[in-house]
């Protein structure tokens, strides 16, 4: 087998692999990034819920979780570029009713920011109430803009 043919045989798969690798690993893939971030927020909400349900919540754990939600929320809005709905649960309405969607995201940023403040304040009842507001903001947007419930 000539060197030329061997090279050609290897080159194509190699090129395909490199390309595929680049696509998968691309840090700028907005779909994968926003989904991973949403999961992080969900996990943080679960932590808050469990702390609050326990009766004697631990402040450091709750503060970290609230900060995760607040910080992540601020980045989510930019991760919905036009045309990034295909193959995800992101409904087309996000782009046809962009203003409403953005408003809901802004609401999440505001309410989760308030949550951090309230957790710092340490009043458990107030934390519980604000937690519900934040959760309602997640649920409201999902109902309108996310496929499957």
């Amino acid at each position: 087998m000539s060197i030329y043919r061997t090279t050609r045989r290897i080159a194509l798969p190699l090129a395909v692999l490199t390309l595929a690798g680049a696509v998968v690993a691309a840090p700028s893939d907005p779909k994968a990034t926003r989904q991973a971030s949403f999961k992080k927020m969900g996990a943080a909400m679960k932590v808050l819920k469990e702390q609050l349900a326990g009766g004697s919540p631990a402040k450091p754990g709750m503060l970290a979780a609230a900060q995760t939600v607040a910080a992540t929320a601020r980045q989510q809005g930019a991760l919905f570029p036009a045309g990034s709905g295909a193959g995800t649960d992101a409904l087309p309405a996000i782009w046809t009713q962009k203003a409403t969607f953005d408003a809901q995201m802004a609401k999440l940023v505001a309410e989760s920011g308030k949550l951090v403040t309230v957790v710092n304040g340490g009043n458990v009842d107030a934390i519980g109430a604000q937690f519900k507001v934040v959760g309602g903001t997640c649920a409201g947007c999902h109902k309108q803009f996310r496929a499957d419930n």
């Binding site: 927020m41 969900g42 943080a44 909400m45 679960k46 819920k49 997640c138 649920a139 996310r146």
Partner: peptide
């Protein structure tokens, strides 16, 4: 666990 992390079964 539901998508919002709000509602869950008792063993979640």
């Amino acid at each position: 666990v539901d998508v919002d992390g709000l509602e869950s079964g008792p063993l979640a």
